[in-house]
Design a protein around this nucleic acid. Structure first.
Lengths: 243, 243
DNA sequence: CGGAAGATTGACGAATTTCAAGCAAAGTGG
DNA sequence: CCACTTTGCTTGAAATTCGTCAATCTTCCG
């Protein structure tokens, strides 16, 4: 699976090769590279934990989620290559949601102290980080709009379109389709729908020839048409020139 | 209405008294103080605009919202004293949602250029800003969980409890209740519910003696009980010591 | 081959939306 | 000060989306 170069990490200048307590996490770590590999199902960050690590996703995918007392799970967002993980814990002191690897993932690891040193010594990089945060905040805002105002078909169309664009932007897939290694249950939990209703809506989208998602691959006949169904708000966030 | 001191602005050292084009916005501005007053219904930031201003809310309340092509509106979050507005535009170049004043508001104004100068010269303040961003991101994540997994009663209980806590934290109201000058329609749009269903659910909460919201004031008999109904995740974000 | 995880389907019920009025409070102009 | 208007709140009934239950099927893997 293609990925993102480690040179894309906002903190790359401050990379520190943090050894983990052996067995502390089910990670295999390559100390030479400062990278880390996580197997599918591994919890990278756990809600309530005071994780001292920050990650940049180099390759692989996962989910951020939160579990309620009543057992229901909400997937807050899908984690794709290029995403930055742990800023919340880094800055608030504690994760308020969990992050789990869906596929095998490669990650670039930093320590929390690096974050503060970054702000002191590399304002441009700190600004980049804030930019990443704003992008993420924007995505969460759009997700709120989706959960609040769109019906099942629109939600799925919206999600498919956004995932397609995000994945294409990091070089994955081709103009016809992208890898999407999640379960229907993950999508249902992300969109606030039941598994059954998600399944039936998926079926309808496929029957209509608009989107086929099977065996971990999402194929879109006409992304623009799907965007229209999902009432997608077109906007390409661009890096704002400093000043 | 009580408020927040301007000295709480993360950018206070960089305050610049930006004169607006007269009549450009329906604002009354006090040039001497670098503050700005917005009347109810005034749009502070508009979706799609390239607003050169950033604000800290000193007093008053408003809503962030986004309107869909189909006319439906989603309130992304309620804007309370102490909130920072416009970071998205400041860093992404364009607002992706609008912000409207509900009550009369007092704001502290900055220019976008100040943001970059802040990162260069005041790393601690830049860090504060990132901290604010992380808090906001956390709130949006919780909102997603609410819209995705909670039913109408739980959503309203959750919203009431969170608003109560946030308002109390900035010194508004008293242990029995807080000012909440929004319309039922605003709450409905924030929680992804219809006005009718919101109204009936509010009625039930009031009849059960759990929360009474009328004439702009929200009274909670027992905040903890309401939190339980709303399955609220207890957590008090604290300022993380640097390093 | 057997087991487990995930996908699929139909039937039924519950939560929520929409539609359609009517009511109350607060402003506005004469 | 009073019609008149506007905005927001309230209520009932009908329509619908969506969730739950229960079962079956498929795929994958050891």
């Amino acid at each position: 699976m293609a990925g993102v170069s480690c040179s894309a990490c906002p903190l790359r200048r401050f990379r520190i090769f943090t050894p983990f307590t052996p067995g502390e996490l089910a990670f295999q770590q390559d100390f030479k590279s400062g990278e880390l590999t996580a197997d599918p199902r591994t919890t990278l960050l756990m809600e309530g934990s005071n994780a001292p690590q920050l990650f940049t996703v180099l390759s692989g995918m996962g989910v951020r989620y939160k579990t309620l007392e009543n057992g229901r799970r909400q997937v807050i967002s899908f984690v794709l290559p290029g995403d930055f993980l742990g800023l919340q814990a880094g800055v608030m002191g504690e994760m308020r949601h969990s992050v789990e690897a869906t596929t095998r993932m490669r990650l670039c690891v930093f320590r929390r102290e690096d974050l503060w040193r970054l702000f002191q010594a590399q304002p441009a990089r700190a600004y980049d980080l804030t930019w990443l945060g704003a992008i993420e905040e924007h995505l969460l805002g759009e997700t709120i709009v989706t959960l609040g105002q769109r019906d099942a078909t629109q939600r799925i169309a919206w999600a498919f379109y956004k995932l397609f664009r995000r994945l294409r932007a990091v070089g994955l897939g081709d103009p016809r389709g992208v890898p999407l290694p999640f379960r229907q249950q993950d999508l249902a939990d992300a969109l606030g729908l039941s598994l059954v209703h998600t399944n039936k809506t998926l079926k309808r989208l496929a029957a209509a020839g608009q989107a086929v998602w099977s065996r971990g691959r999402l194929e879109l006949a006409d992304p623009a048409a799907l965007a229209a169904i999902g009432l997608v708000d077109h906007h390409r966030p661009e890096r704002r020139p400093l000043v």
